[in-house]
């Protein structure tokens, strides 16, 4: 079990770094979907020994939502907007990857003194979830298109999800369902807004949404 957990951690770090270095938006969506599927396995992996129906249900729900529904929504938005890649982001791709590595170092360094009480599943989980949150934030501020910003938001949510499943463990099912539903609606609402922005402005360049100031 522990071995599998470490694999998940490594996959998480790799997908984050790859995302920072990818310009084609289709590939970005696939990467985030893959990350969602990997994370969907976490609820089953953390319970060594018996696996309850609750954990399986959560895993299936997460995989369906993050691996199937979100990518579909985003692919559709992408086709409507008729763009393929993130042209000319604020921060270049190689610099982004270096920033990512720096963020990883920072999250390991800042969390080394903080021991979260509870079962010590993997010492790397907290720093890696923090790293994922930082990558999500970085992706939101360093890219121009609205789609990339939604992807950044999803990565941020993935980071929080990792923490939730592994460290906190059994939060009541209703809360978890509420959270999943909220994220689903958030992405859905963002998708609709992107659709309307595309129709009104003829582009989805969030950088050019700058008429409101002061």
């Amino acid at each position: 079990m522990n071995m599998l957990m470490e694999t998940v951690v490594v996959l998480l770090i790799l997908t984050n770094l790859m995302l920072l270095g990818t310009s084609r938006l289709f590939a970005c969506i696939r990467l985030v979907a893959f990350q969602g599927v990997v994370l969907g396995c976490l609820p089953v992996l953390v319970h060594s020994g018996h696996v309850g129906a609750r954990a399986v249900g959560l895993a299936v729900g997460t995989i369906l939502l993050k691996g199937v529904v979100f990518p579909r929504l985003l692919f559709r938005a992408l086709r409507e907007a008729n763009i393929r890649r993130e042209v000319d982001p604020f921060v270049g791709y190689s610099v982004s990857i270096f920033a990512g590595i720096l963020a990883l170092a920072v999250s390991i360094w800042t969390t080394r003194h903080l021991t979260i009480p509870g079962p010590g599943v993997s010492t790397l989980i907290f720093p890696v979830s923090l790293f994922t949150i930082l990558v999500g934030l970085f992706h939101i501020v360093s890219r121009r298109t609205a789609i990339s910003q939604v992807l950044g938001y999803l990565v941020l949510e993935n980071g929080i999800y990792t923490f939730a499943v592994v460290i906190v463990g059994e939060v009541p099912l209703m809360v978890e369902l509420g959270v999943l539903l909220d994220i689903y609606v958030a992405v859905f609402v963002m998708g609709i807004t992107i659709y309307h922005i595309n129709r009104e402005f003829d582009h989805i360049d969030a950088d050019q949404l700058d008429s409101l100031k002061g």
Partner: peptide
């Protein structure tokens, strides 16, 4: 629409942070 987008994105990130705080 511009205002809606900014509101959605900034507040969603904010609320996500609040969730992390709730978990901690």
């Amino acid at each position: 629409l511009e205002a809606t987008w900014k509101y959605l994105l900034i507040c969603s990130v904010g609320i996500a942070f609040a969730f992390m705080g709730t978990l901690l």
